[in-house]
Simulated assay, not measured.
Amino acid sequence: MSCVDIFDDRALSLAPAGAQLERLVSGAIWSEGPVWMLEDQSVLWSDIPNNRMLRWHPTEGQSVWRGHVEYANGHYREADGALLHCSHRKRAINGVMRNELYICASTSSYRIRLDTHGIQTP
Rank of each mutant, 00 (worst) to 15 (best):
residue 37 M to P: 04
residue 72 A to C: 09
residue 100 E to I: 08
residue 83 L to S: 11
residue 107 T to H: 11
residue 75 H to G: 07
residue 54 L to W: 06
residue 58 P to F: 07
residue 43 V to N: 04
residue 39 E to A: 14
residue 91 R to T: 01
residue 99 N to G: 15
residue 31 S to Y: 02
residue 92 A to I: 01
residue 12 L to R: 12
residue 64 V to Y: 03
residue 114 L to H: 13
residue 122 P to A: 04
residue 112 I to A: 08
residue 45 W to D: 02
residue 81 G to S: 09
residue 73 N to A: 07
residue 24 L to F: 04
residue 22 E to I: 08
residue 7 F to W: 08
residue 13 S to T: 11
residue 77 R to E: 02
residue 76 Y to S: 10
residue 82 A to W: 02
residue 109 S to W: 04
residue 49 P to K: 00
residue 98 R to C: 11
residue 104 C to G: 09
residue 27 G to Q: 08
residue 79 A to Q: 13
residue 91 R to A: 01
residue 109 S to C: 14
residue 93 I to V: 14
residue 118 G to P: 14
residue 22 E to F: 03
residue 92 A to Y: 00
residue 49 P to D: 04
residue 116 T to W: 01
residue 8 D to G: 10
residue 18 G to C: 09
residue 29 I to E: 12
residue 107 T to M: 13
residue 81 G to Q: 07
residue 42 S to K: 13
residue 82 A to P: 14
residue 121 T to W: 00
residue 62 Q to I: 09
residue 110 Y to P: 01
residue 44 L to G: 02
residue 70 E to I: 02
residue 120 Q to H: 08
residue 74 G to V: 01
residue 36 W to D: 02
residue 17 A to N: 09
residue 92 A to G: 08
residue 52 R to N: 09
residue 56 W to A: 07
residue 93 I to D: 01
residue 15 A to R: 14
residue 32 E to W: 02
residue 57 H to L: 04
residue 15 A to S: 11
residue 86 C to P: 00
residue 86 C to M: 11
residue 80 D to A: 13
residue 92 A to K: 07
residue 18 G to W: 01
